[in-house]
């Protein structure tokens, strides 16, 4: 292995890794809002709204992320939807992960004991207040780890946006191979960077999990 080459190309890959982090973080944040909206829609009293939300989730889960990306980037302009590659990566990432995340959030909310809801309602709290003060603080602890797993999937999926030429970690690696002809060194280094990013995500998730469930250890 050509260590000198690896040291030489490292700054370029670090820069590209930052794009990977950026695109994933933005998709995660927007995805969280989409997921929350989907959860609200799925509990709507109007059946067609519930049905729409469910269908959306089924379509996203039933198609590959890669196809979704290509569809929006290359198919979008035909219906007037023109996005630059980076924005397209964020938007498709957010809508994709949002569908999965809505299930994680819903599952967490549903697994808070029903007695909690009854106790809160019996004190005179309304539905929304119960959600705000009682259910969500407990559901947070239950959803953090599954949202964390989705964040990791999001980071890994972000390598696919290289196909629409966003200069993130995988795309940069391919470009470097074009000029160095050293796939082993370049891909090893980029794989290492993915590991670093993912371990950082896992660390943050564990930290947040401990914070949100502190009360069970006290």
């Amino acid at each position: 292995m050509d260590i000198n080459l690896m040291i030489e190309i490292a700054p370029l890959l670090v820069k590209a890794a930052w794009v990977t982090v950026d695109i994933s973080a933005r998709a995660l944040v927007f995805g969280f809002f989409i997921a929350s909206a989907l959860v609200a829609l799925r509990t709507s009293r109007i059946p067609p709204i519930r049905w729409l939300a469910r269908s959306y989730i089924s379509v996203v889960r039933g198609t590959p992320y890669f196809v979704q990306l290509l569809l929006v980037f290359y198919g979008g302009p035909a219906i007037g939807l023109r996005l630059d590659p980076f924005t397209c990566g964020v938007v498709v990432g957010a809508f994709n992960i949002g569908a999965y995340m809505s299930e994680a959030i819903r599952g967490a909310i549903e697994s808070v004991e029903s007695g909690q809801n009854e106790a809160s309602r019996s004190l005179g709290f309304g539905r929304l207040e119960t959600l705000q003060y009682i259910i969500l603080p407990q559901a947070a602890g239950l959803m953090i780890r599954s949202v964390g797993v989705l964040a990791i999937i999001l980071v890994k999926n972000s390598s696919l946006v290289s196909i629409i030429s966003v200069i993130e970690l995988t795309y940069q690696a391919q470009r470097l191979i074009g000029s160095t002809y050293k796939p082993l060194e370049v891909f090893t280094l980029s794989a290492l960077m993915y590991i670093i990013i993912i371990y950082a995500v896992m660390g943050i998730v564990e930290f947040l999990y401990r914070r949100a469930t502190r009360y069970t250890f006290l």
Binding site: E113, Q116, E118, A119, S120, S122, P137, Q138, G141, T216
Partner: peptide
Amino acid sequence: MGMVFQHFNLFPHL
């Protein structure tokens, strides 16, 4: 009205 439940239903996060 105050209600007391068989399984207490205290809020564990508080």
